[in-house]
Amino acid sequence: MHKEIIFKNVDYYYQHDTPYEYKALENVNLNIPIGSFTSIIGKTGSGKSTLVQMLNVLIKPTNGSIEIDDFKINSKTTNKNLKPLRKKVGLIFQFPEKQLFADSVREDIAFGPLNFGMDESKIDSVVEESLKLVQLPISIMNKSPFEISGGQMRRVAIAGVLAMKPEILVLDEPTVGLDPKGQKFIMNLIHKLHVEQNMTIILISHQMDIVASYSENVVIMHNGKVVAFDTAQNIFSNESLLNKYDLTLPSSIKFYNQLIANQLPLNESVPMHVNQLGDQIIKMFSRGRN
């Protein structure tokens, strides 16, 4: 068993061999450690979503291969026997509430697990467990997914994927369009899954504050290529790298840089989270007092 998800020389063309041909990924080589929290950042159209769709064989690499555990995906992979892989890798798409369709919340959450052959008798406990994870009341179970609020719909959709008990969770901008409280809730949930269940998380996001606060590794994509892959600390310490690819600094680091520019004697390591910056400032003042 591999301890990594391995992308080897992956190319992907949309509409290969037609005049509409468009190269979305070019020679992607990437090893994402199992059990890590890895974020993918980059401008719109840089190939982030294309890359993660391959983890479920929704599209196949035109050239190159991907290895996840014992699964090997290349252009010749057939569409048969993909269920074990799709059960292992749970994909939460942009605006996942779009995928809701069933008569009741219960049925919608049970849809994935039933497709993957879970026992009918276990379904109720799995649905309840997933609802508890996303902190929705059990009573919502018998409502139609179209009569609950937008934020609740998003949570139900996420619960539907979590009910499949994936080992690897891939999220494509899960917080977009939510209010700050909702965003924080979703990110805390993902963080909890990562820490408590040791779930591998792959997150696509444009919100640098979120990326910096939660991820261990960061991948930068640009024009279909992976241009940087390093720890979050190293990536966000390198301002010129971020500027080069039109990415912004997280607000904690922006503020930290301003303080440094004003000659304040802060810690050397850049803060990944506002709380870390707060700690550094408190320490600085207590140092100054002694």
């Binding site: 929704l58 749970g90 994909l91 779009k98 994935g112 497709n115 993957f116």
Partner: peptide, 15 residues
């Protein structure tokens, strides 16, 4: 596009 993205979401839920 919408149909493709919904299809992808349901395929990854085992359809």
């Amino acid at each position: 596009d919408e149909a493709t993205s919904i299809m992808n979401a349901q395929r990854s839920r085992g359809v």
